[in-house]
Design a binder for these strands. Structure first.
Lengths: 234, 234
DNA sequence: CCCATGTGTAATATAACTGTAATATTGGAA
DNA sequence: TTCCAATATTACAGTTATATTACACATGGG
């Protein structure tokens, strides 16, 4: 079941960025550019999690937080402006579950959202581990097990492989991969992907005949899986 | 809910005596007259506590203990023969929770069973002690046993190690570690973690090939455990 | 009050990863 | 086949992350 996230943020750019990332991971989002709208929107949409900027026009984040807390136990993650000091104890007292300081890494934001959701027992359902013939991609231990041997793989490579292998046989263009793995805000040469694919292939070549990192000429790349094989994810 | 106790004892009379007392106090018992049966019975019945005689035909008690510890956190109370000396450090390393010397008073045995159960109470019990190859982290006595030697370790370091080793192979970011070990309200540089890791490594280096404090570049740290090895926790 | 010890920070050194650009190779269409 | 465009490969250097070291402050016992 998809989970709703209410994004309370007045900075349009940041709000939009958050929205894109969250929707990419399967969340449904609601937006609120100020405190009053946040409260209205909150009671209307009953989200499963709230991302709350502290600096807001109208009622500020603290007020919004304490209003929400008056009749809900929904997890709240606070976002503090750059340089602004955040009093963790006050945050706790107000009922925040976690906080993130701007400027933030989207990876960090997603990790915290997943952590909070997990804590509250809403499974976010994202598989952290993929297993194929002689291949285990484990994002929890952040390692690759190839043919029974642990293999060290740099983060970008591992994330790229994980992403491809999460949707076997689906072709991704280089730009999709840059968006998905590097992030929406990444601007770089799409040839970069080629190099990472090459590095992955070195580590994976000759291991199994059941799957392969395949080039789709003129389009992009895919993790190709033999028909009889099933994906197993934990 | 009734609790299961596995009695590993080759002396029929003692075994029977233990059984009677335990059942009188509402425990369900399983019997194992030697080491091999003990292990079979253990995996079959998944007891909540093990009473383990050290002198056994077949595999001796130490061996049984260490086998059990490879994939279970169940409390173990060892029973030593009359006059036999019990090496506490070895006991710790093997993962025993307590020991009783024969001849024992049944009152004493019951008291210790209740104490152990209470201490590691099955409802709430968080592990207080971790045992790996040549490594014991005991948060109860607040000490570290490395390769059989008690080692003094400052509190922060010990807590950090304990936390990492509580979830072997799982990667923690520096921020997670600061939150988890230093506390949610701690403000400090995440580089602090690096220094503590360094200090721990000095104390642990070269001790065992089965585990290691590993850096996951770009992510954080993990307590990596050899693949064949299982976590053992009390 | 001083000492020994723990802890955090900052500076520096080292190591690992990444992206780019230059070059070689391959695939596909005419 | 021949050529062009796309992809593979290689090497390198910049960047970032981590390790190491040294030091300063705090703490708590003697």
């Amino acid at each position: 079941m998809p989970r709703k996230v209410l994004i309370v943020e007045d900075d349009q750019n940041i709000a939009e960025l958050l929205r894109m990332y969250l929707e990419k991971e399967g969340f449904i989002t609601r937006m609120a550019p100020d405190g009053n709208i946040a409260l209205t929107e909150f009671s209307k949409s009953q989200p499963d999690l709230v991302l709350l900027d502290l600096m807001l026009p109208g009622r500020d984040g603290w007020e919004v937080c304490s209003e929400i807390r008056k009749n809900s136990t929904v997890p709240i993650i606070m976002i503090t402006a750059k340089g602004e000091t955040f009093d963790k104890v006050q945050g706790l007292e107000m009922g925040a579950d976690d906080y993130i300081a701007k400027p933030f890494e989207m990876k960090e934001v997603m990790a915290r959202i997943h952590a909070v959701m997990r804590r509250y027992g809403h499974s976010t359902g994202a598989a952290r581990r993929l297993t194929y013939d002689k291949l285990v991609i484990d994002m929890e231990s952040f390692e690759l097990v190839v043919d029974g041997k642990r293999t060290d793989v740099p983060p970008k490579e591992l994330e790229l492989l994980f992403h491809l292998a999460s949707s076997p046989n689906r072709v991704f263009t280089r730009n999709q991969l840059l968006d998905d793995v590097w992030g929406f805000d990444y601007f770089g040469d799409s040839r970069t992907v080629d190099v990472h694919i090459k590095r992955l292939r070195e580590k994976l070549e000759g291991v199994s005949t059941r799957w392969t990192l395949k080039t789709v000429w003129g389009v992009g790349y895919k993790f190709e899986l033999g028909e009889s094989d099933e994906k197993s994810a934990i």
